Amino acid sequence: MNTDPRPVYARASAQVAALIETVRPEQLAGPTPCTEFDVRTLLSHIVGGTRRIAVVGAGGDGLAVRPFADGVADDGWAAAYVAAGREVRRAWADDARLDAPVRVPWGETTGRNALSGYVMEKVTHTWDLWEALGRPLELDPDVAEFALGVARLVLPEPERGDDVPFDSARPAPEGADAYGRLAAWLGRGPTAAR
């Protein structure tokens, strides 16, 4: 993959930031399509994963960062996410980071590939949150198309083992948009949160 993922990461990040702003306190304990996470845990993972990719972009070890944010008050998720996003922008500002070797949970790769993988994760969790919150905003189809392309590249086989953090692919619903196709490819479905 030779594309610079930073612009699409920025769009995906702005989109999830807007979505986090819509979360109401009574929704925090609600279910999500990511069946092991309620909304609060999903927000913790979104913020923690963002902190992790900031460390990776700065040349640190992605495995040294826990992918969950601790100590965030229920009314502090939006601010915590914005702060983590600032760290990401600083860490990935230098073009040289795209071709530098980095270490992420799935192995050693280039910064470009790592950040592309985090676009896929961010967009997937955006869909999870969007579904859990009752689809409060329109989502950007272009970031979902990018994430779907990454997902099919890094997870080309529909059947997944226990060592992969995504379930086996499901059939996408008839007429599904890019988010629906991405969710299905990663083993998710909207009925889990409804």
Rank of each mutant, 00 (worst) to 15 (best):
S44I: 02
S44Q: 08
H45L: 02
I46D: 01
I46F: 03
V47I: 06
V47S: 01
G48I: 00
G48S: 05
G48A: 07
G48L: 07
T50K: 08
R52K: 06
I53C: 05
I53M: 08
I53S: 07
I53K: 02
I53L: 07
A58I: 03
G60S: 04
D61E: 06
D61N: 08
L63V: 06
L63Q: 15
A64K: 07
V65C: 10
R66G: 12
P67H: 07
F68G: 10
F68A: 13
A69S: 08
D70F: 03
D70G: 07
D70S: 06
D70Y: 00
G71T: 04
G71M: 01
G71S: 03
V72G: 03
A73D: 06
D74M: 03
G76E: 00
G76S: 02
W77G: 04
W77R: 05
A78F: 11
A79F: 06
A79Q: 10
A79M: 07
A80F: 05
Y81C: 14
Y81R: 10
Y81N: 12
V82E: 13
V82G: 13
A84F: 09
A84Q: 07
G85C: 09
R86S: 15
R86P: 15
R86E: 15
E87K: 12
E87W: 09
E87T: 14
E87G: 15
V88P: 15
R90L: 09
A91G: 12
A93E: 15
A93Y: 11
A93C: 11
D94R: 06
D94M: 05
D94Y: 08
D95G: 11
D95E: 14
D95I: 05
A96K: 10
R97C: 09
A100D: 10
A100M: 04
A100N: 03
A100W: 00
P101L: 00
V102Y: 04
V102T: 05
R103Y: 01
V104M: 11
V104E: 12
P105M: 02
W106Y: 13
G107K: 11
E108P: 09
T109C: 13
T109Y: 05
T109V: 15
R112T: 09
R112W: 02
R112P: 12
N113C: 11
N113I: 13
G117T: 13
G117N: 12
G117S: 13
Y118S: 04
Y118R: 01
V119Q: 07
M120R: 07
M120C: 11
E121A: 00
K122G: 14
K122N: 13
V123T: 10
V123C: 01
H125Q: 03
T126A: 05
T126E: 02
T126N: 06
W127G: 08
W127Y: 06
W127R: 01
D128F: 01
D128T: 01
D128G: 08
L129N: 09
W130Q: 08
E131F: 00
E131L: 12
E131D: 10
E131T: 13
E131P: 06
A132M: 03
A132N: 05
A132T: 05
G134A: 12
G134D: 10
R135F: 01
P136I: 12
P136M: 10
E138C: 01
D140Q: 01
D140I: 00
P141G: 09
P141S: 06
D142T: 13
A144R: 05
A144M: 02
E145M: 02
F146H: 14
F146Y: 14
F146Q: 10
A147F: 06
A147E: 03
V150W: 10
V150M: 12
A151W: 10
L153F: 14
L153A: 15
